[in-house]
Nucleic acid binder design. Structure first.
Lengths: 232, 232
DNA sequence: CGGCAACGTAACAAAATTCTTACAAAATAC
DNA sequence: GTATTTTGTAAGAATTTTGTTACGTTGCCG
């Protein structure tokens, strides 16, 4: 028989907390709960849970700060809950170091599936984080979701096309590394080609337009004169 | 010897209530009854029944609201009773979080079979709610009945063909996951094939026509450009 | 300060992908 | 065996994405 995992759920809304408790205990996990960030930190230190589910909007030390604090001293996987603001796809908190996220209101099956996936990954890996394995690639306040092929910058969802995603995946997977236009082309398009630098350039521009606050003076996706592009 | 299960039956019709009591006690269960939603909630909190059978059309707090309220604080399985309106196959309440349903008038055998199945699955010992095992797959206001291969959207019964059911089962069992047309084809048809994207597409469209309020701007069954389709 | 080369921008055309519709083939029911 | 339902195919429309061209801007070097 497998061992029983302990999950720490932190949310200031007792209703959400009870839903979480119900679903997770129903699925066979042991659940401990906290209703604010401080309590979550204290419980995390004491109970050594196998997984933490945390709302990012909580009174006192909010979930974002709590996530970062826990992360400093513990390698436990953290799943973030965030409310979907009216109309906009605003998702905060991915930059705090979470391993996965769920937008409220969420569905039972999705919650359980993510919990299961996180536990499996961190269990088999012996809680060692391997780069390249993770779903979320984080560089600064830009987060790439490999599973859904989605991007978040400054907490907001940003739509990417397939090519744009490919380029960003390459650059963000190797932050600080410079790639020439030719190299980007050959690795994203999987084919050699002549005189296509401009094609890559246009895509770089489009990515900057979407991810950078001021595309003219990019903060992350920079050019290295005569060499190529870096993401940092 | 197995322990004796307690079942809470709630219905405003005393005749139905007496039938339920008779059948269930006859089958060896302990039965407590309530004749409205409030009483059902109170009894559920006090008696901690192993199963709740609830009519969704009741005076006062109706069964739908009662179901949701009970669900918030208790993981007990809930079986919903609903009257089949004249002519239409309107079945409300599946979206409230029920685990199974029965349309009145029902047969004794069907009632007992469902009660037995639910109790077995939810028995605190081995039965843990595992996704993939359940009869009802619920994503938003869309509910798929795996046992009967039927679909309900916004409380209404919707007829699905076999292929449509197969595709929806795949997508709804993995909400939030993107499946390419090829993958959908290979997993639903169980065979590889070339140039059949269009076939999948046509089925997707037909499903959307049936499940979505506005098929042109789908709410659940969305496309991810260049990648595939998701249900969320 | 020019000149030159590398990079950035905008608009537009081309291509790829998805959607829609209609109809024929196949399966199923009567 | 016929009628009905379901499934698959094809063609074109609509949409999104991608590539190209032309021109503007920036930084480097004398």
């Amino acid at each position: 028989m497998e061992r029983i995992y302990t999950i720490l759920a932190a949310d200031d809304d007792p209703q959400i907390l009870s839903i979480l408790r119900e679903e997770l205990t129903g699925a066979g996990y042991k659940v401990v709960t906290a209703s604010d960030g401080d309590a979550a930190c204290a419980l995390a230190a004491r109970e050594h849970p196998d997984l933490i589910i945390m709302d990012i909007m909580m009174p006192g030390i909010n979930g974002l700060a709590a996530t970062m604090k826990i992360r400093e001293e513990n390698n436990v996987p953290i799943l973030i809950l965030s409310a979907k603001a009216e109309g906009s796809d605003r998702v905060l908190g991915l930059e705090s170091g979470a391993d996965d996220y769920l937008v409220k209101p969420f569905f039972r099956q999705e919650l359980l599936a993510r919990v299961k996936a996180l536990l499996r990954r961190f269990d088999t890996l012996g809680s060692i984080r391997e780069s390249g394995t993770e779903d979320l690639v984080r560089v600064g306040n830009v987060v790439l979701d490999r599973a859904k092929k989605q991007l978040f910058a400054r907490g907001e969802y940003i739509h990417l096309t397939a090519t744009e995603y490919g380029i960003l995946d390459l650059l963000m997977s190797n932050p600080g590394c410079v790639f020439s236009a030719e190299e980007i082309y050959s690795r994203v398009w999987n084919s050699e080609s002549f005189a296509v630098e401009n094609t890559v350039m246009v895509h770089i521009r489009r990515i900057r337009e979407k991810t950078e606050l001021d595309p003219k003076h990019p903060e992350h996706l920079k050019v290295v004169w005569g060499i190529g592009y870096v993401f940092s």
